[in-house]
């Protein structure tokens, strides 16, 4: 909230109505996220560890895990995403009500990780828009918690009134893709060491 001008007494505070609404809405959204765990592989185990007693992400308002996409705010994709699962995550994402956020947990969800092969989607951002990428293979629970805190920060910067900062639904285009094919090809390019690892002997 911005403090507007000089005020005589500290008992009242002036602000824009819009800011007040945004503040109220966003902090309640951020501090009580309902995660939809889309746990597929190893990262899901670390996700469970984050939810269990030692790390306990309920401390950050994620008390209730939503196992139904209809009652979820944030989709946490924990683990690798093969092409066979791609339509599933898209459907789950489409079923979530607005506003919704996506955390991509782990190297596989973010880039395909060590699986640069025929079966694996090279980053879930070719399928659904992603807000926070948590690196690591798997990320430590602290890493995931940090990602969640980053998401809080991002949510608090959003606005209901400002078209730029508002979340809009991002449907698939008429070819059934989220990004243009060239972009998908480009971001799925092998990089680093995996460029050299296509020969089998």
């Amino acid at each position: 909230m911005k403090r507007v001008g000089e005020v005589k007494s500290s008992n009242y505070l002036l602000t824009k109505f819009q800011d007040l609404v945004d503040w109220a809405v966003n902090s309640s959204r951020a501090n009580s996220l309902w995660p939809m765990p889309f746990g597929t592989a190893c990262c899901a185990i670390e996700f469970m560890a984050t939810a269990a007693s030692r790390f306990d992400f309920a401390r950050f308002g994620m008390e209730r895990q939503a196992f139904s996409p209809r009652q979820a705010d944030v989709l946490i994709c924990a683990g690798r995403l093969p092409f066979k699962l791609a339509p599933v995550i898209r459907r789950i994402y489409d079923q979530m009500p607005q506003p919704k956020w996506v955390i991509s947990m782990g190297a596989c969800a973010s880039t395909g990780g060590v699986f640069d092969n025929y079966a694996m989607v090279q980053g879930i951002d070719t399928i659904v828009p992603v807000d926070v990428y948590v690196p690591g293979c798997p990320p430590r629970p602290e890493g995931l918690l940090y990602g969640i805190l980053l998401l809080h920060k991002k949510i608090k910067g959003e606005s209901l009134f400002d078209a730029v900062k508002r979340r809009e639904e991002q449907p698939l285009d008429d070819k059934g893709l989220r990004l243009p094919p060239e972009t998908i090809d480009e971001i799925s390019e092998p990089f680093g060491n995996s460029v050299h690892q296509f020969r089998s002997s």
């Binding site: 597929t40 592989a41 683990g79 690798r80 093969p82 066979k84 699962l85 599933v88 060590v114 699986f115 092969n117 025929y118 079966a119 694996m120 690892q197 296509f198 020969r199 089998s200």
Partner: peptide
Amino acid sequence: LGYLHSGFEKLGEYR
């Protein structure tokens, strides 16, 4: 099955 098929065995031939 196959929703988590990651091609391990194929990948192994290249490592």
